[in-house]
Nucleic acid binder design. Structure first.
Lengths: 231, 231
DNA sequence: TCAAAAGTGTTAGACGTACACCCATGG
DNA sequence: CCATGGGTGTACGTCTAACACTTTTGA
C-alpha cells in the first residue's frame, strides 16, 4: 500500500560507484579506479565518499545517478546499472538515510582527462582509505558485482574506445579479475560469443605482428538483465 | 553527499513479492502463486497490489519486508532478498513514490493455511489480473529472478518442508521452470552439489519403490550473494 | 636474426544430456 | 505379475584449460 503515510525523518539519496581503468603509478599496468568526493560538512567531514546527492523530485533514479556522474566527473557512463538499496537504521549518524546506489563504467580515455579538483580525486579500488558512512562496504559489493558480471556478460568493451584489439579486451579482463588469461582461449571465446566484429584495420607500431582491430557488436544486448530492461 | 537536503514529496515504501508453490485447481500440479492485497483507497482503489507499506523510521529495509510478509500472510520467509528499487517519476498517480521491493519464498505447507480474507488472496503468478501501479512489471521481474536464481543456487528447498524426497525437489524445479527434468541427471547434480544430506528414513505409500528422504545441508550458503551477505 | 606478441592447432579432462536398464513397492 | 516411480550405468557431444606451434612485425 504505497502512496500514503509519508514517513518523516527518512531521506532518500542516490549515489554512484564509477569505475574506470587507469595505469597504476608504480607498475604502469591498468587497474580499477574510482572517483571519490571529499565531504565538506558533518557527518564525516573531511572523509572521502561516493559521489551522490538527494533525489530530485522530477528525476528518475537512473537519471539521478547519471547526473551525479556528470556533475562530479563531467563524464557520460558507457554502462549504468542499479547496485542495491542500502537502508540500515544506523548507517548515517544523526539521520535516517536510504541510499539507492548505482554502478557505472566509463572509458579509460575519457577518464584520463576527467575533472580533478581539491575535492574530487581518483583512487585505486583495491586500495581505498577509510571512507564515510558504509561506503567501503558499498564499493566492495560493487567490485564483486563488476567482477561477476564481467565473466558472464559483455560489458568489458565499456572500458575501451570505439575500436580495440583482442589484447586490449583481454587486458580489461585481466585488470578487473586480477589474473592472467590464456590469449588463445580468450580469443576463441570472444569470437564465438559474437560480441565483437572484426574491422579491416590493423594496429601497427608494436615490435611484433600487427593486431586486428575489432568493434563492439551493437546488435547484441551486453547483458541479460531481465524483462525490465529488454529491448 | 547524503544526509542533507531531505527532498519533499518523495515517499519511500517497501513492498514484497511472496512466492509459494500451490496445486493448480484444474490439473492439481504445483505452480507458482503469490498473495496480493486489495487496495482500499485511491489511487487504484479496488485493484490488487503487492503487499507493502511505508518504511518505519526504526526498521531496516529487510525487516520492513519481513514485517509486511507477516502482517499480510502471518508467514515467515524461508528466503528473502532485495529485488530492486523502483522510482520512475510517474509510477504512482499524484505522488512521487520510490518502492524498494523484496522477494520471498515461503514453504508450501505454511502457505496452504495462510490467512485469506476479503482483501488478501492468492493468485497464480503466470495468470495475474491487471494490478495497481507498475506491479505487473515488478512481479514479472521477480519471476525472472526466481527462475534464474533457482538454476544456479540452492533455494528450491525453501519451498519444501524439513525433509523431502529428490522427486519433491525436482518437482519444485519443474514447477518454477515450467519444464520436465531428467530424474537421473537431476539426482546426480543435486547429490554432487552437496546441498542435501540423506536421512535414514524412506517415504513409503506410493505404489512403487520407497524414496529416500533428504534434509537440507545447513552448513552451506544457499546462494553466493557477495560480500554483503557472506557468513 | 632475434624477441615479442598475433594467431592457429591439438589434446585431455570435466561436464551436461540422453537414454537403457535394474530395483522395490502397492495393487 | 505388472505398472510405477526410485535409483544406477553408460556413452556421446560440448566446453574448457593447457600448451605446442607458426606468423609477422620492429629493432
Amino acid at each position: 500500500m504505497p502512496a500514503e503515510n509519508p514517513v518523516a525523518n527518512v531521506t532518500l539519496a542516490v549515489s554512484t560507484v564509477i569505475f574506470a581503468l587507469r595505469p597504476t603509478p608504480t607498475s604502469g599496468r591498468p587497474t580499477v579506479w574510482l572517483p571519490l568526493v571529499r565531504r565538506i560538512r558533518e557527518p564525516h567531514h573531511g572523509l572521502w565518499a561516493l559521489p551522490g546527492g538527494p533525489l530530485g523530485s522530477d528525476e528518475d533514479l537512473q537519471t539521478a545517478a547519471a547526473n551525479t556522474l556528470d556533475e562530479t566527473t563531467g563524464l557520460t557512463p558507457r554502462y549504468l546499472e542499479q547496485l542495491y538499496a542500502f537502508g540500515d537504521v544506523d548507517r548515517s549518524p544523526g539521520a535516517r538515510v536510504v541510499s539507492i546506489v548505482y554502478w557505472a563504467l566509463v572509458g579509460a580515455e575519457e577518464a584520463a582527462d576527467a575533472v580533478v579538483t581539491e575535492n574530487v580525486r581518483w583512487f585505486e579500488a583495491d586500495d581505498l582509505p577509510k571512507l564515510a558512512f558504509d561506503h567501503n562496504r558499498i564499493v566492495e559489493y560493487a567490485l564483486w558485482r563488476l567482477r561477476n558480471k564481467l565473466e558472464y556478460s559483455h560489458i568489458a568493451h565499456a572500458f575501451l574506445g570505439d575500436t580495440f584489439t583482442l589484447a586490449d579486451l583481454r587486458g580489461v579482463h585481466e585488470a578487473v579479475l586480477g589474473k592472467q588469461l590464456d590469449p588463445a582461449n580468450f580469443r576463441r571465446q570472444v569470437e564465438a560469443s559474437g560480441q565483437v566484429v572484426p574491422t579491416q584495420q590493423l594496429q601497427t607500431g608494436g615490435r611484433h605482428r600487427p593486431a586486428r582491430l575489432y568493434r563492439y557488436n551493437c546488435q547484441l544486448d551486453p547483458v541479460d538483465n531481465g524483462p525490465l530492461f529488454a529491448r
